[in-house]
Design a protein around this nucleic acid. Structure first.
Lengths: 209, 209
DNA sequence: TTCATCGGTTGATCTGTATCAATGTTCGCA
DNA sequence: TGCGAACATTGATACAGATCAACCGATGAA
């Protein structure tokens, strides 16, 4: 009924079109959802963090590739019994609906970012999101010592940029004194207000992640 | 309990942050969902067509502007009784979940388009979507005499381009013999295969709208 | 009939980001 | 202990699409 599976960084969890015999939830680690064009250009369309959900009732294949970014552990259920459970336990459907609607909100914020923001604004938005998410998870409120969970290349795929542009803009924000790097994967935010201004977002219009 | 409201083209149905006392479904017409940056750049993040739904249980404001594109008629319900209905009628929650998941799939396809496609590919994808959607609605199977529901400017906002680029790419596809214009708002597809190739999409990876 | 407006087209130029290329840094492993 | 691979930075150049600007053609009001 219920089983655990683990994946190494870089390992593909599911390919687009794969048969989806299981639904799963992320126990540990970070995974990416991504879509690819014919010639190989790819775009991340979501990140999976612990407690996030894979699979959907009534659909037997996935529409994107799912790849482990860090070590990932999933908790898997067979799809059939899970679907029956939805039928019989109404508030599960409700909960899943809320999850889907939250993801939809996040996807739409990302559409604004991908369609209209400059490279600089994209990077600033991404960093601000990391601040907010780290704080929500209650780790710290001081915006210092944040972790970049992705490589420059992965950030580029997330933001619709190239890795060179990511590197340049990250350094630009550093040189302007908004952020400081501890090492390549760790940074702190020196001037959160300036960072927010650099996102281009409307006063109260941050990402509700 | 249930009432109808109408809007003229260009009229704003809801502003971001507006109090959402109602949920509604579109009876007639086309409306857009859009998000705006501080300096006015805007990006459409969705289109509402007849049968589409506005509002979500458990959230009292909308996160984007909703604007009528054509004459629009909505059928509105008070939010409270609607939410109670969800609690008591389980398959409504299920249906809403499916709608949300479908929209999420569409949003993710759009993220790939916004983040990675060229102007030409964006236009081709948009036209192919119109073909598919028109055919689904059973109007015709011949890809001839399709209607462009949006102005050049609105298309630009939908695709993350400027209106000049939309105009140029539309003409480029015309000059290559893929499409033909009847007038500014009506066209037919001459070479559907070529149009599909121009989308850049992976063989079987069309938009499941 | 004229004029104003709105949506659309077309042209010239500019610019942000991609691309191409070389170099630097870190870390795991023989 | 040093070597190689992966990740990252930096520089030079190219180009797609934005921007600025002029013009066109319907439609509708006076």
């Amino acid at each position: 009924m219920k089983m655990y599976r683990s994946y190494k960084p870089g390992e593909t969890i599911l390919w687009r079109g794969d048969d989806l015999q299981f639904v799963a939830s992320v126990v540990k680690g970070v995974a990416s959802l991504s879509k690819t064009l014919e010639d190989g250009r790819t775009q991340m369309v979501g990140l999976l963090l612990p407690s996030d959900f894979i699979g959907r009732p009534g659909r037997e294949t996935v529409e994107f590739d799912i790849t482990a970014i860090t070590d990932v552990t999933l908790c898997c259920f067979r799809r059939k019994p899970f679907e029956e459970m939805i039928q019989t336990t109404p508030h599960i459907a409700q909960r899943l609906m809320e999850i889907a609607l939250d993801e939809l909100d996040a996807a739409r914020d990302w559409m604004l970012l991908l369609g209209r923001k400059t490279a600089r604004e994209k990077i600033a938005t991404f960093l601000e999101m990391l601040v907010r998410r780290t704080n929500v998870h209650g780790i710290d409120a001081n915006s210092s010592d944040l972790t970049l969970p992705l490589t420059r290349d992965e950030i580029a795929n997330y933001l619709g940029l190239t890795l060179e542009t990511v590197s340049r803009q990250l350094n630009a924000l550093k040189n302007e004194g908004m952020i400081r790097f501890v090492d390549r994967r760790h940074f702190e935010v020196v001037d959160l207000l300036a960072l927010h201004e650099a996102t281009g977002d409307d006063a109260d219009g941050g990402l509700p992640v």
